[in-house]
Design a protein around this nucleic acid. Structure first.
Lengths: 235, 235
DNA sequence: ATCCCGTGATTGTCAGACAATCACGTTGGC
DNA sequence: GCCAACGTGATTGTCTGACAATCACGGGAT
């Protein structure tokens, strides 16, 4: 299917999930800034849910790393230091590589297990999902948030295609941390063409099954995603 | 518990955390078995908290991977298939290696960042914490649950000593999955001497800073933790 | 036997309330 | 005048109770 990725209706959407995603979006858009404290009553009113439901949603975000919670001091949007950004880039590099090796090991067929509870993907599995995500990334709007989401979707598809259930479990953490990086410095949102080229070579390396090409592409990918953030921030 | 990591009072213990840990313990001890459905009212009564608080605790466990939740069908203890166990072992190998390289990179000094919010460790940082965890592992009671906890504490100290904040964020997932493996097949709990030897060579390799020795030790460690489970289960 | 429908049970969510704790401005002492 | 103890409001952590929505299950009609 060409238009693949528009979500057709992911089964059931509880209010808790709606609230969590609303807050995630608010963080992506910069509406809620890192370090900002979250007052439960006010936020519950804005999101349109009750306080217990909001707390459940916030607990989810805490687990993902998007928010922090200190006893009797409540919730706040998490903030990152430079080292954390570097750690994220480095760790994601390692796990990206692991995912790709998993894809290769799975062979030319789909590979990925069909039963992936929790994430409502587009129904595709394995490398086909990666291709779809790649197309979506290429065709994404120039708007920074759309680009970010498409970028995340590509990496998510990668991890999912690996069929490694451990990677799938850990993905939400990686995704949230990446989102937090974006939220941490809005200046990150530029030079999309370069990012596209980097990922193109990455995808190409995956398709070619050439470990050396993969090495080069991934090193470039990671170096970019780390150093870009840091240089921009220290300016 | 008598052995090592007796928590001296990690600041504040909310009822939610107490409830979460009570359920974790129930899963470790086999009191709650994988796949078993969790009725909220009954469980809230047993744990001694209200239903909203219990739900917050369960949400935490869901995020960690210890439990599952389907809309309008409630919570259940998660269950693993063989592939998931293999994935866990493989992924943990990669991240263990990453953690150790981080420790090496940090140098002979502590290295690990002192500000580690969330986890109440023993106050030690870096390799010192690893040594302490290793001692605790060696001195641990023969009781399987204590052994399991000491084993987890060792690996947690490893990840924490790396100073990689991304690893620290992902650790709860790894820990819960490991616990789930233990809960999945109680027969896993034997041959502690062998496990001790494997970890001894691992620790020795870390201290020696010899990459080749590390390779050997880690391969052995992982092969053991994966194959043991699988052979036992398929018996 | 198969399908439809009612009934009970369980979950998702809400509203309101209370004690415990924290943040902060005020008062008193030196 | 400056610092410390104090009281006050605000916010969180938690509880109780309740209600609609949905699911699981069994009985009856065809």
């Amino acid at each position: 299917m060409t238009s693949a990725a528009h979500s057709p209706g992911p089964q059931v959407r509880t209010r808790r999930e709606e609230a969590a995603e609303a807050i995630r979006r608010a963080i992506i858009s910069g509406d809620l800034q890192p370090g900002q404290r979250l007052r439960e009553v006010a936020l519950a009113g804005e999101v349109g849910v009750s306080r217990p439901t909001l707390r459940e949603a916030l607990r989810t975000l805490v687990q993902e790393g998007l928010c922090e919670q200190e006893p009797h001091r409540g919730f706040a949007v998490a903030s990152l230091d430079d080292q954390a950004i570097r750690d994220l880039a480095e760790t994601r590099l390692v796990l990206d590589r692991m995912a790709i090796e998993g894809i290769w090991a799975a062979g030319p067929d789909g590979g990925g297990s069909a039963d992936s509870p929790g994430y409502a993907d587009s129904g595709l599995v394995g490398m086909a999902a990666v291709d779809a995500a790649w197309s979506a990334y290429v065709d994404a709007d120039s708007d920074p948030v759309s680009q970010h989401l498409a970028h995340l979707a590509l990496h998510r598809a990668l991890w999912q295609a690996s069929g490694n259930s451990m990677l799938m479990r850990m993905w939400p953490v990686a995704e949230s941390m990446s989102t937090l990086v974006l939220a941490h410095d809005q200046a990150v949102r530029r030079d999309p063409g370069r990012a596209l080229a980097v990922h193109a070579s990455l995808i190409e390396a995956i398709r070619s099954r050439d470990p050396e090409a993969l090495d080069a592409a991934m090193a470039e990918h990671t170096r970019r995603s780390a150093e870009e953030f840091l240089t921009l921030r220290s300016d």
